[in-house]
Amino acid sequence: MQNEKVITAKELTKRFGSFTAVDKISFDVKKGEIFGFLGANGAGKTTAMRMLCGLSLPTSGAATVAGFDVYEQNELIKKNIGYMSQKFSLYEDLTIRENIKLYAGIYGLTDERIKEKTTMLLKDLHMEGEEKTLVRALPLGWKQKLAFSIAIVHDPAIVFLDEPTGGVDPITRREFWTLIYEASAKGITVFVTTHYMDEAEYCNRVSIMVDGRIDALDSPANLMKNHSAKSMDDVFLQLARKAVRKE
């Protein structure tokens, strides 16, 4: 069970016209892992993630997510994953409670379960008493934490996080990672992209994308050893400097 693969990608490629955004990437993600997906802006992280989530059709290559094929079974994949996009995408003109209810309802939770989940979620986020606040009025950090909690409201097998902590202060970032660990402890596989190298060190394994290709993939400790670097920052700089492609 421990080595069960929940995501497999083989030579997965996405081209937009003559531009190859993602160039034959291959990797596996094991169940329960926190998998860091690193890369400079424009390296192709988001495109790769969107293909895995069934939001974008791959040009070639193969991939399965939660045991389902990305070409044919994309709607089945969607039942089993949570996704938090780079751009905040909950409804700003709905309240916290209404957003939770909407997404819990969409994923088919029963009324009773929705109630339970709402109470639990508000408590975990320390947002009790705020359930009638419009999401628009929340500070960015709160919004991001709420978006994450709603992305896993249906206890998916995998959650995809696209730069979840972009623009968030260090304290909230730490709290956010606590939430990620809690989700991971519940058995949810976490697939996360980030720019922050301290966050990369929280991951079990990280891959580093340069110009649409995966240039390195290992645990943070091994990566530092192999690149004789003192920190993940060094590793990243060594690899990312090789990029030819502009943003």
Binding site: C53, G54, L55, E75, L76, K78, K79, I81, Y83, S85, K87, F88, S89, L90, Y91, E92, Y103, I106, Y107
Partner: peptide, 13 residues
């Protein structure tokens, strides 16, 4: 425009 459709599209609706 708001980006909210992304969250809908990634759901099994």
């Amino acid at each position: 425009e708001m980006g909210t459709i992304e969250q809908i599209n990634v759901s099994p609706i």
